[in-house]
């Protein structure tokens, strides 16, 4: 797929130029019916394709899509600052942005360490969930037996409040990384499986018939047709999964840990240190946002051809 994704960028540019000069296809020896000039006028989509946007244009497009939410955030921030500074609510409940900022810079080395711990648990959990989820999805999509045996259990397991398993995991695996990672995997697994199964099942049956007449084995059919076809679904599932993995890691830390942002949150809570609490929350959200954006970028690189990528989605080339 990467090979495919990489040359698509070049292909776009090349096709755009090609479309311009191809109104009359060459060498069409007609049977005397309709002349070659009428055979292939450029189809609507090709002729009207906008050229690949330059870097400046893309930056402008990004700015255009970002200024509205930025304005809303700024308004919210201003309101927070005003309320806190005027002490309509006491500062031990709602600190001012300056207090939060001071706390964050003062305790940066400590906070950075805890952030890395949570980031590590989240990323490992997410990667494992993606790998296991995809494997389960493939098994379910390919085997009727596994479909009937596994899928109902996967669906049913979703009703178990997985956060409630956290104490058990701590009892079993102690206070280290393991219970947090397992919890992150458990929470992030579900959307990957569901989206993977939906994606793999969405293959056009005629394409599968075609693959059969091409004499291709199941592995080739998977690699060339079913997997790339499932990618749009799968990427949507991965985006949900990555934010859920953060939740899993933090909740795991709540239950029993000596490090990590979840642990710091409990500590700050116990000390009524709301400035630290806010700083901690911001860092947690930061992890979620950064990982989400990374998955978005991966999606833009992997499936630039997909309809969801053609519309003006923020953070992409539009």
């Amino acid at each position: 797929m990467t090979e495919n994704a990489l040359d698509t960028a070049g292909r776009k540019a090349a096709a755009a130029t090609a479309a311009g000069e191809s109104a009359v296809p060459a060498g069409n020896s007609s049977t005397g019916g309709p002349g070659p000039s009428t055979v292939a006028g450029p189809p609507p989509g090709v002729g009207g394709r906008p050229p690949r946007p330059t870097l400046g244009r893309r930056a402008l497009g990004l700015a255009d899509s970002l200024w509205r939410p930025a304005l809303v955030l700024a308004a919210f921030f201003a309101a927070w600052w005003f309320v806190a500074a005027q002490e309509y609510v006491p500062n031990y409940l709602v600190p001012t942005p300056v207090q939060v900022w001071t706390t964050m810079t003062d305790q940066w080395s400590e906070l950075a360490r805890h952030t890395l711990v949570t980031l590590y648990e989240t990323v490992v959990g997410f990667v494992l969930a993606a790998a296991l989820g995809l494997a389960a999805a493939v098994a379910i999509a390919y085997s009727r037996t596994l479909d009937k045996a596994l899928y109902p259990i996967v669906l049913f397991a979703q009703v178990i409040p997985k956060i409630a398993i956290a104490p058990l995991l701590v009892v079993w695996f102690g206070l280290g990384f393991t219970p947090k990672i397992i919890l992150a995997v458990l929470i992030a697994f579900f959307p990957v499986v569901i989206s993977g199964v939906a994606g793999l099942r969405s293959t056009d049956p005629e394409l599968l018939d075609l693959a059969a007449t091409m004499g291709a084995g199941p592995w080739r059919t998977f690699r060339k047709i079913r997997f790339p076809n499932a990618l749009p679904h799968l990427m949507a599932g991965l985006k949900v999964a990555v934010t859920l993995a953060v939740v899993g890691a933090v909740v795991g830390e709540f239950v029993g840990a000596s490090e990590g942002l979840g642990y710091v949150l409990l500590l700050a809570n116990g000390n009524l240190d709301s400035a630290l609490l806010f700083a901690d929350l911001i860092l947690m959200s930061g992890i979620g946002i950064v990982l989400f954006v990374l998955v978005e970028i991966a999606e833009a690189l992997l499936i630039p051809w997909h309809a969801s990528r053609r519309a003006g989605v923020p953070l992409t080339t539009s």
Binding site: A15, E21, P25
Partner: peptide, 21 residues
């Protein structure tokens, strides 16, 4: 590609092609 008059459209993605193409 030449025989069917697809010359110039080699790199066009399906959604950029008409039904006939």
């Amino acid at each position: 590609i030449e025989m069917t008059g697809l010359t110039g459209f080699e790199k066009a993605l399906p959604h950029e092609l008409s039904g006939g193409m």
